[in-house]
Every structure is written in structure tokens, then in C-alpha cells.
């Protein structure tokens, strides 16, 4: 024991350089389990691995209880991993020094604090915490809250409050910004404005880690995304490629005297040509449906759940079908 700690100390004199400067976040086999009285351990995150490159906007998707929030909180340094390694901006975030905190920004999922402070006051106080803050007035303009600079935070609408939360997250000029379900409860117009704001931050080079339940939000904002289920990453990719081509085969749907039909095909044009006999017959309700990110996401989760069921309940369910084949 003593020997190994001594050797590891000599290997890292002072602060080690980041292993890979291009990656803002590297997570390898991260596990987090909670001890629950009488129920055994609850495994919230299970050997999760992912990499987020510097400058990209990365969306973390998954159902409630999949381990998104726990993962984010570990990346923020708010929780200690049970096992596995986590490197954020070249450092282990847990109990990292204040300098690390000055390089990240966190937008909380729900906070109702600071109600009796004015918007500009709260931002000025927050700016004083950082070595290289953005200007308060510029940040207020960036999030579109400048007209409310002198208003008490408790008097703001939900959407305005959220803008203040984002302003507080970006005031320290962070290299990495965490956004945890930022647009929950927004009306559609406010959501669009919010997306513009986040895209602007992304263009300025800020690495953004976003969790959301809105697949259209992930589609609009993310350069890449990861889908988490049961504490693991089950798929990664861009919004247009995640899940692979098989889940994205277009479906042609139409209705005739026999009822509704649906066919999956990689060449919908040819199918329709054949179906309509070269355009001489017009089917009812003809549609070509390309699976949306939401369709792909739901299908991936369905497959994941099915896999979990088959692996845990094993043969009795699957063997009769096997015999039929």
C-alpha cells in the first residue's frame, strides 16, 4: 500500500497536464451506487463511459431514473464516484480546487433561491466569485433579461427566472457549461429564444453538456448525444445518425379498400411508383415517414428494455419461439 501511494506521488509532480486537451470530459467505467437501508445497493450509474470533446454541445438523454442527473452531478464534482475514473477539464472534479469551479458553469434544474435580490445584484455578486468574469450588463443582454435588471428575482416569470439561472451559469466565463433540463415549463416561443441563446454560447466555443427530455431540443442544440438507460450509455451519435441506419428506414403508409398498410423500405420512391402503378392510381392518406429522433430514441429504449427482460428472465420465454423457427 505505502509503496504504491509513494510511486503514484512521484509520477504526478504538481498538477498533471490534461491527458487529452481535445476532450473536455472523459468518463471511464463510472459506477455510482447508493446504500439503501433494508433494500441493498441501488446502482444509479453502471460502468458508464463517454467522451465529450472540447467545444461541442453534448446532449445526455434518457428516461427519469436512468442516471442522467447522478452522472451530471459527478461531472460537476458534487458527488463522489463509487468506482471508475472521471476527468473534467483535465481534473478529477470531486473536491477539485476553486480554480476548477471557476472554469465550469452550472445551471441548476430547479432553484428558487435569491428571491429578494435584484437580477443585477445577484449577477454582480456571482461575478465577484470568478477570476475572469463576463460583464454583468453584457450577460443580461445575452440572455435577454436587461429590462428586468432592477427587478426582484421573485417577481420574474418562470422563463425569465431560467434566463437568470443561465446568466448566473455563464457569468464566470466558463469553458464548460452544464445545463440540466433547462427549458422545462417554457412556452414554445420562449424555448426557441432560449435555444438561440445556447447556440450562441456554443458558437463562442463553450463546451455545453445538456440534459433534456425534449428530443427536438437535443436535435436543435446538440453536436452529439448519448442515450442513457439503466445507468449505462446505450447509444451515442449525432441526432441524425444515432441508432444506426436500420432504425431510420423510411416507412410508407397508405390506405386502400383492405384498410391501412405500412411498409418499411429504403427506396420509398420505387415502392410508391409500383404501388400507384406509375401514378395512375391514388391511394388514400399516402405518407412517407422518416423516423424522427424521438422514434429512434423510443425504439432504442424499447430494445434495451426487451434485452434486459430476456437476459434476466432467460430461456422459458424465448425457447418456445425458438422451437417454432
Amino acid at each position: 500500500m505505502k509503496q504504491s501511494t509513494a510511486s503514484s506521488r512521484t509520477e504526478t509532480p504538481g498538477s498533471a497536464p490534461p491527458p487529452d486537451p481535445a476532450s473536455a470530459v472523459v468518463v471511464d467505467s463510472l459506477t455510482k451506487s447508493y446504500r439503501q437501508p433494508k433494500k441493498g445497493d441501488l446502482v444509479a450509474v453502471d460502468k458508464l463511459s463517454l467522451t465529450i470533446e472540447t467545444g461541442e454541445t453534448y446532449a445526455l438523454l434518457g428516461p427519469n431514473g436512468a442516471g442522467k442527473s447522478t452522472t451530471i452531478e459527478i461531472l460537476e464534482g458534487h458527488r463522489k464516484p463509487t468506482s471508475g475514473t472521471v476527468t473534467v477539464l483535465g481534473q478529477n472534479p470531486y473536491k477539485a480546487p476553486a480554480l476548477f469551479r471557476s472554469r465550469i458553469g452550472i445551471v441548476l434544474q430547479e432553484a428558487t433561491d435569491m428571491g429578494t435580490l435584484k437580477v443585477a445584484e445577484a449577477l454582480k455578486d456571482a461575478a465577484a466569485l470568478y477570476p475572469n468574469p463576463r460583464r454583468v450588463d453584457e450577460v443580461m443582454v445575452a440572455v435577454g433579461i436587461e429590462e428586468k435588471a432592477g427587478a426582484l428575482i421573485k417577481s420574474l416569470s418562470g422563463g425569465q427566472r431560467r434566463r437568470v439561472d443561465v446568466a448566473l451559469g455563464m457569468i464566470g466565463n466558463p469553458e464548460l457549461l452544464f445545463l440540466d433540463e433547462p427549458t422545462t415549463g417554457f412556452d414554445p416561443a420562449a424555448r426557441r429564444r432560449f435555444w438561440d441563446l445556447i447556440r450562441g454560447l456554443g458558437k463562442d466555443g463553450t463546451t455545453i453538456v445538456l440534459t433534456t427530455h425534449y428530443l427536438d431540443e437535443a436535435q436543435h442544440l446538440s453536436d452529439r448525444l448519448g442515450i442513457i438507460a439503466s445507468g449505462r450509455v446505450i447509444a451515442t451519435g449525432t441526432a441524425d445518425s444515432v441508432g444506426g441506419p436500420d432504425l431510420r428506414i423510411p416507412r410508407v403508409r397508405w390506405r386502400d379498400d383492405d384498410g391501412q398498410h405500412e411498409k418499411a423500405t429504403t427506396s420509398p420512391g420505387a415502392l410508391i411508383h409500383q404501388l400507384t402503378e406509375g401514378g395512375s392510381w391514388e391511394p388514400t392518406d399516402l405518407e412517407v415517414i422518416r423516423p424522427s429522433l424521438e422514434d429512434v430514441y423510443l425504439e432504442l429504449l424499447r430494445q434495451h428494455d426487451a434485452d434486459t427482460v430476456t437476459t434476466t428472465t432467460a430461456d422459458p420465454l424465448t425457447s418456445p419461439e425458438g422451437e417454432q423457427a
Binding site: 452550472i106 432553484a111 433561491d113 456571482a126 466569485l129 470568478y130
Partner: peptide, 18 residues
Amino acid sequence: AADRFNGGIKRLAGTPLP
């Protein structure tokens, strides 16, 4: 207690504030 449950401590703990 209010700071614990309204996100106040969580927010501050995410900043460089000692």
C-alpha cells in the same frame, strides 16, 4: 434550511465560493 432546499447552497457550492 431554506438554502438547503431551495437550491441556494447547491448553487453556491457549484461556484468557487469557499
